[in-house]
């Protein structure tokens, strides 16, 4: 049975699409048939982050409206086996996303895929609500910053009250925290909320900490999910996150201050 996972946050720009791209790529690398769906109708970007923007012909809304079938709209990733992308429509209105339409497509995808990753748009409007409605699990992407944490808390409230699982009284959506853009040195200095602070406020289990990293922008420039950038800190953090999601018990990395030489620490500079 396929698992539907929504990547959500409420606030924009915190790393939802980056996380969706790397998470889906990671699942596929580990042998699971994975599809990642862009729910951001009108502002699609997952295709750019995945590097397949020039291969988009049909989109999610075309399939909902029976203007194309799923196989025509699904883009097969050229680097990773078992990985497919379903792009959002760039031209349609987000009202085109209906509960029935989304359900129909998810049911069809469930026949062939192990994991369906739904990349939510920012906000709490239709696209965001549709992306989380059918979710079994949720990755809540949060930055250690006041507005992001508050918005994440709102999203947790919506997952607990407006998802299909909540409406039908089934087991609740399983929530995972992804703390992105974390800078251990700033947290140490008291200039940034610590991991512990965010966990205390949101009260959901931590799946992964992604360090603030130059690799994220560089890989998006190239259209390569950062998890494929071997040797990068953010890429390694996403790889750990995927393994943890699949049940491995791994310690969190990149959460300590990078060690500096004694003299450099003593005399500053840095």
């Amino acid at each position: 049975m396929a698992t539907v996972i929504v990547v959500t946050s409420g606030k924009g720009g915190v790393g939802k699409t980056t996380t969706s791209a790397s998470f889906a790529t990671g699942l596929a690398l580990r042998g699971y048939r994975t599809v990642v769906i862009d729910f951001d109708v009108g502002l699609r970007n997952l295709d750019l982050i995945m590097g397949c923007e020039r291969r988009v012909v049909y989109d999610f809304i075309n399939v909902i409206n029976n203007e194309a079938n799923l196989n025509q709209a699904l883009i097969r990733d050229k680097r990773v086996e078992n990985l497919y992308i379903l792009p959002a429509s760039q031209t349609r209105d987000k009202d085109a996303l209906t509960k029935e339409g989304v359900e129909k497509i998810l049911n069809e995808l469930k026949q062939t895929f192990d994991y369906i990753v739904c990349d939510s748009p920012a906000g709490i409007e239709r696209g965001a609500l549709m992306s989380l409605y059918y979710a079994d699990e949720a990755l809540v992407v949060t930055n250690p910053e006041v507005s992001s944490v508050r918005d994440s808390d709102r999203i947790l409230g919506i997952l607990a009250s407006r998802s299909q699982r909540a409406e039908q009284g089934d087991a609740p959506v399983k929530e995972h925290l992804v703390l992105a853009r974390y800078a251990p040195d700033r947290a140490y200095r008291g200039d940034m909320l610590t991991i512990q602070d965010v966990l205390e406020i949101l009260g959901i289990p931590l799946l992964g900490v992604i360090p603030e990293s130059q690799a994220v922008l560089q890989s998006s420039n190239a259209g390569v999910p950062v998890i494929l950038e071997e040797g990068s800190d953010a890429g390694a953090a996403y790889a750990d996150l995927v393994d943890r999601f699949l049940g491995k018990d791994l310690p969190h990395r990149f959460i300590e201050i990078p060690k500096k030489g004694f003299l450099k620490r003593l005399f500053g500079g840095g």
Partner: peptide, 28 residues
Amino acid sequence: PRPTTTTAALAKERLQIIVAHERGSSRR
């Protein structure tokens, strides 16, 4: 490493208050 007067401590305090307030009306 964390004196209570840091901006992060202030952020945490403000968040705890606003989140508790907003949960009262909606969340869980």
